[in-house]
Amino acid sequence: MEATVGRNEGEFKASSLPKQYLNFLHIVNGLQFNGLNIYGVDKGLSDIKSEESIEGIIEMNELWHENAEMKKYIFFGDADISWYCYDMDENMYMELDKPSGTIVSSFDDFDFMLKNALEMALS
């Protein structure tokens, strides 16, 4: 059985995650740095043991999707004042204001969004 993120409308299969995000997971299973959290593989879905407590992408998307307006997004991470996600309706990666959901920035791909998130965490 394949893991899914979200419920009903807005649900997606783990195999539909972007290749750039999957490549990131092959290097590091999630990231926590200076208030930035990039979600990793959920506990129980991976054999990788980690000393760090990394939030899982499925678990966090289920949490954010409790708000029906947020079901159109796949959430890859968050920071103190931002969410980093993919808008499935607009086919665009975005940084959203947390908690209003207002678009702060948009990106062409996952890597550019991740680069921006890391730069913000370093500043």
Rank of each mutant, 00 (worst) to 15 (best):
D87R: 01
K19S: 07
A3G: 11
V28N: 06
Y86H: 13
Y73F: 15
G77I: 00
L122F: 12
V5C: 14
L31E: 04
D87E: 03
K115V: 12
E2M: 09
K98C: 01
D111I: 14
V41S: 09
N8E: 14
F12L: 05
A121N: 02
D97W: 00
D80E: 13
M94I: 05
T4F: 04
S106Q: 12
M88N: 13
G101T: 02
D47L: 09
K115C: 04
L118A: 02
N23Q: 11
F12Y: 06
E2W: 05
L45A: 12
F33K: 10
I58S: 05
L45Y: 12
V104Q: 12
G77D: 03
I38Q: 01
V41L: 11
L63A: 08
D42I: 09
F12W: 11
N8M: 10
T4C: 12
T102L: 11
E66C: 15
S46W: 03
F33M: 06
K49H: 15
L63K: 07
S100P: 10
I48C: 10
E51S: 08
T102E: 09
S100E: 08
F12I: 11
L22D: 07
I27F: 05
D109G: 11
N29S: 11
E66G: 08
M1Q: 13
T102A: 12
K19C: 03
D80V: 11
A121L: 07
K49E: 13
E62G: 12
R7N: 09
Y21N: 03
L96R: 01
W83N: 03
E59T: 14
